[in-house]
């Protein structure tokens, strides 16, 4: 079973994502702040990470940069979720190696489709 790590300080968002992704057949791990998210990512080596930008302690971009510059984790696809849609955010995202950018509010179906898409691609590799 493919492992998906969800990191977001909004518990409600995490739970709804967990519900639909588990219904779609993924194993979900959840973290509610950046620090826990980062250590969990290193511990479980997930197949995909859904990451919120604005979080206490370590923000999403920083986690992304730390993982993407590490050979061990750099191939893990990262979907960045944020309420901000400013161009600058997207630019930082590109620089830090974000694979895809999702703006709140999002459709759950859309996320499930995206996760399925990424994990199909990476399973072929």
């Amino acid at each position: 079973m493919k492992k998906v790590l969800i990191v977001d300080d909004e518990q409600d968002i995490v739970e709804s994502l967990q519900f639909v992704l588990e219904a779609a057949g993924f194993k979900c791990y959840c973290a509610y702040n950046g620090e826990d998210g980062l250590s969990l990512a290193r511990e479980i080596l997930p197949d995909l990470i859904i990451l919120d930008v604005m979080m206490p302690k370590i923000n999403g971009f920083k986690i992304c940069r730390l993982l993407k510059y590490d050979n061990k984790y750099k191939n893990i696809p990262i979907l960045m979720v944020t309420a901000r849609s400013q161009v600058e955010d997207k630019m930082i995202g590109e620089e830090t190696g974000v694979d895809e950018y999702i703006t709140k509010p999002f459709e759950l179906d859309e996320i499930v489709k995206k996760v399925e898409g990424y994990l199909k691609v990476s399973s072929k590799q």
Binding site: I13, A83, E107
Partner: peptide
């Protein structure tokens, strides 16, 4: 921006309920 986050949670919950899952 602040409004978007709770709104997302509401929509997500509604979607889950409406999907019948």
């Amino acid at each position: 921006h602040e409004l978007r986050t709770p709104l997302t949670a509401i929509r997500n919950s509604l979607d889950i309920l409406l999907s019948g899952k």
